[in-house]
Simulated scan of single mutants.
Amino acid sequence: MAATEGAGLGQPCWVSLLTADLKASQEFYAAVLGWTFRAGSFGEGFSVAISEGKPVAGLSDAASSLGVAVSWTSYFAVDDADMVAARVRERGGTVAVGPLAVGRGRVVLAADPMGAVFGFWEGENLPGWRIGSGSAPAWLELRTRDAFAAAMFYGEIFDWAMDRPGRCEVRYEDDAVTVRAGGRTVASLRGGAVEADPDPRIRPRWHVYFCVDDVEKAVEAALAEGGAVVAEPSRSRVGREATLRDPEGGLFTVTQRAG
């Protein structure tokens, strides 16, 4: 986790890979995304990925100890982890871990009613870290069965669409529920028959997009490092992209950097 002046309450404030082999994950993402790494502030087993000199994401070898699948997890900023955890339970979600004191804040790992795992963080966030800006991920997308039901759940626990300064706005556009903050799109929620996917590892989830200079080169590097291609390079509504799986099963999408 990282430390908040970057993201307002209810907004995405960090992404982190829960992995079972930190060293192997660092080698894979260094080759595919060009990241370097430094030790995290939460002790052994944590590291921070650096892109263009700035923190971009976290990596932790806690997947095995927490008993969860290797995955990228999206975190959201809150001011009261206990209150939000109670809201999660009241609305049919599950609190798996926490609130747990970590560094100068508290973290919670939870799942929404459809099973998508997410986290939230009470404490200082990383100044300047904003989705779609600088070194931060380009995009977050909830892939779920019922986008409107999901929007109601997250809207209620994170106070989206509340008439308060800095809160996220929610709207329907481009066949998805779009979450905006400060005039920027920070996430989208898309529905569909996730359970019908032939790959049993595909389930409702928060999916992370990272920018690269060349999608094809990223795909080649992923294959060379033992990863797999889930969706071949193609042009989407936001640009050229490809979805990849790292050797441990972590899913993510690379998208062509604008310009």
Rank of each mutant, 00 (worst) to 15 (best):
D21G: 08
F46H: 02
A31C: 04
I50L: 05
Y29D: 02
A2F: 03
G40D: 11
A7E: 11
Q26N: 03
G34V: 00
R38E: 12
G6I: 07
F37L: 02
V32I: 02
G10V: 09
A49I: 01
D21H: 09
W35Y: 14
G45H: 01
A3P: 08
T4K: 09
T4L: 12
G45D: 06
T36D: 14
V32W: 11
E44T: 15
Q26A: 05
W14C: 12
F37Y: 15
A31L: 13
F37T: 09
S47W: 10
V48Y: 01
E44L: 11
G6V: 09
K23A: 13
S41F: 06
F37H: 05
A49Y: 00
S41E: 08
F37C: 07
F46G: 00
S41N: 05
S47D: 04
A30R: 15
A39N: 12
S47T: 11
W14G: 13
F28E: 10
Q11H: 15
M1G: 12
T19N: 08
A3S: 04
G8L: 06
A31F: 06
S47I: 00
L18S: 03
F28A: 11
A3G: 07
L9M: 14
L18D: 07
A49E: 11
Y29G: 01
Q26S: 07
F42P: 00
E27F: 00
A31P: 01
S25N: 10
E52F: 03
F42Y: 09
V48D: 02
S51P: 00
F37A: 03
L18T: 07
L17D: 09
S51Q: 09
E5Y: 07
G40K: 02
S51V: 08
S47Y: 05
G40L: 07
V48W: 02
Q11C: 14
K23E: 15
C13Q: 10
L9A: 04
L9I: 05
G8D: 13
E5C: 11
L18V: 02
A39P: 07
A24E: 13
A20W: 11
L22C: 14
A31W: 02
K23G: 10
L9Y: 03
E27R: 14
A20G: 15
E27Y: 01
